[in-house]
Design a binder for these strands. Structure first.
Lengths: 332, 332
DNA sequence: TCGGACTGTTGACACGTTTTAATACTGACG
DNA sequence: CGTCAGTATTAAAACGTGTCAACAGTCCGA
């Protein structure tokens, strides 16, 4: 493995290494003819700049980290699209990490990102403990919370989950539901508890007792989790209506109920959350709560890069979008 | 931003920087008491190793690159899961890149990976031109092709796409199809042409003319592409049966046909490819060709790391799995 | 007591780039 | 012809870690 560095290029072009570096980083400072000669040498030798050396020297890499709860969830894929579209314009890179909703994996991911000296981190935290992020920020790494509202001294971009939960359950109640179930992932996940909070608010508003809503907690917020929840519900007596903390859960629930011969929406109404693309194509098109997912990623990234570029002049912002009810067959 | 390095740690622990480095990289070489003292200092100072410096010194990073055609496609998400499960055991990191089926973006991604000095690259190439990969390998970066069979001097893990296309179309013919359509992404993508090859073979075997199969090419292999294809088909006269080059296309086709009042499978039979999780939950559960997706990622990674660890002793392997027909409602 | 074998630790250098202050060069003008 | 302003280039010093040869310390057997 022959490593051709800036030195070899310099030699071949008959200039000093410093000039090669200038060609790479501030081409306007070097005379056109020299520049051409250097670029030619770069091409001939197949030189590729060593990013680690540049990062070491600069103290920071041209990369940001994105830590999501579940890469398998189209919601986060869509967020990631928004992030990448912004970032690639500024020739930065995105390091995508998956915490799998586990604080342990999240911590490991953050450590890797810290080691890589990323400029900033976009993260949907796996639990309420943000102390690791605080540590990161003390190291000079900018942080923006995604889909997680912040209290003040940090940027965040989120969607009003309480309002979303309220929308969903109000809709189910309007439709005549008496006994409801809330299918959710671990309650350590903020989105899950907030949506439940909204759901309960809807009950109160409608003058119903809190016990009209039964929680069904499963360990993973995906289709298997949904199937598991459906089994529990089938065993314990079905409600009139089910609100799921995301669409993957809802699709799993729908699947398991159908296989058990339960008709949706005739026997049980069903609504999910996120409005992922597949929901509208499901066996029974799924009602859902729509969020501006792509925007979430895009705006979060803009805030992050703004903070990176001007850490002192930057004023932290907390942006919150409002979700939207999408009614389809599953709750009609 | 205070940077605490190996030197500060050494000072606090009363040892030399070399010893701290040993604690980090070969703990067994340093006495237990010293090790404890150093680790304590590390904790107290909140030291985080500088990955770029380590990479610079070592000549390569503890990371591999994974370049996929479409992160939005559950097929690749599943591959990525297989990759990460293997990689995280060996405390390496995965840099996930999305080429979006574009050779230009693929080239950009490969350049970034080269700059990062990754140990190896797992890639599903966006076209047949593998010269960039050849360049990478000359630089000493191991390469394994994923879902793309190789000819000999490089490792590859793939699934027999010709067989898959054959399976799909044979099934449609058995079911009585006379006029067929093949909905596909750009024919520069190998998977698309191979599956078509298989489809045509099936026609020949059945003694049908090649013109019984009409190609419908769309620019993107996702649900929008599928909807676009369906519009073309609706405008040009519907076939009896449609074979889609992947499930996302098929879901899009299904959607658009249903909206146009076409019944699946009564008016048109439909089969996809990949058997992603959502296919079985679709409005009309989708027939598909199943591939050992997770295995693909897992085995490719094992091959890659094997090659990284012992580049000389490594013998390149080309592994090919056989796909499997899954019949559901959409073609029953 | 001494030599030898072994274990633990050290110091210094190298990795490839960026940056800064200094130097060489080029015309233009007095 | 000398000076000056401005531009183009250079040399050298970092950045933080890993490695390796050399060195100190300890223990054992002779």
């Amino acid at each position: 493995m022959v490593t051709v560095g800036i030195k070899e290029v310099a030699q071949r072009a008959g200039v000093s290494p410093g000039t090669v570096s200038n060609v790479l980083n501030r081409p306007e400072r070097v005379a056109a003819t020299t520049r051409a000669r250097v670029q030619q040498a770069i091409r001939e030798l197949g030189f590729v700049r060593n990013g680690s050396a540049a990062t070491l020297r600069a103290g920071q890499s041209r990369a940001i980290g994105l830590v999501v709860l579940d890469v398998g969830n189209p919601f986060f894929v869509e967020v990631a699209r928004g992030v990448e579209d912004v970032v690639s314009d500024r020739d930065h890179a995105v390091i995508l990490c998956n915490s799998g909703e586990s604080p342990g994996r999240e911590a490991r991911n953050l450590r890797v990102l810290a080691e890589q000296r990323v400029r900033g981190v976009l993260i949907t935290p796996a639990d309420e403990d943000l102390s690791l992020l605080e540590d990161l920020r003390e190291r000079g790494v900018a942080v923006v919370l995604v889909d997680h509202p912040a209290t003040g001294d940090v940027c965040s971009v989120s969607v009003d989950d309480v309002a979303g939960g309220d929308l969903a359950v109000t809709h189910l109640l309007d439709r005549g539901a008496e006994r409801l179930a809330y299918v959710t992932g671990p309650l350590g996940i903020r989105q899950c508890t907030e949506r439940r909070k909204g759901a309960r608010r809807a009950l109160r508003t409608a003058g119903r007792p809190a016990r009209a809503l039964e929680d069904v907690v499963v360990p993973e917020m995906n289709a298997s989790g949904g199937r598991l929840a459906a089994e529990k519900l089938l065993a314990g007596g079905l409600p009139d209506a089910i609100f799921c903390a995301n669409d993957l859960l809802a699709l799993g629930v729908l699947r398991a109920l159908s296989q058990a011969g339960v008709r949706v929406p005739d026997d049980v109404a069903l609504i999910g959350y996120d409005d992922i693309e597949f929901s509208s194509a499901a066996a029974v098109p799924l009602s859902s709560i729509r969020q501006p997912t792509y925007q979430l990623g895009k705006i979060a990234t803009e805030l992050l890069l703004e903070e990176c570029d001007d850490p002192r002049g930057h004023a932290h912002q907390q942006i919150m979008f409002q979700p939207e009810l999408v009614v389809r067959e599953s709750s009609r």
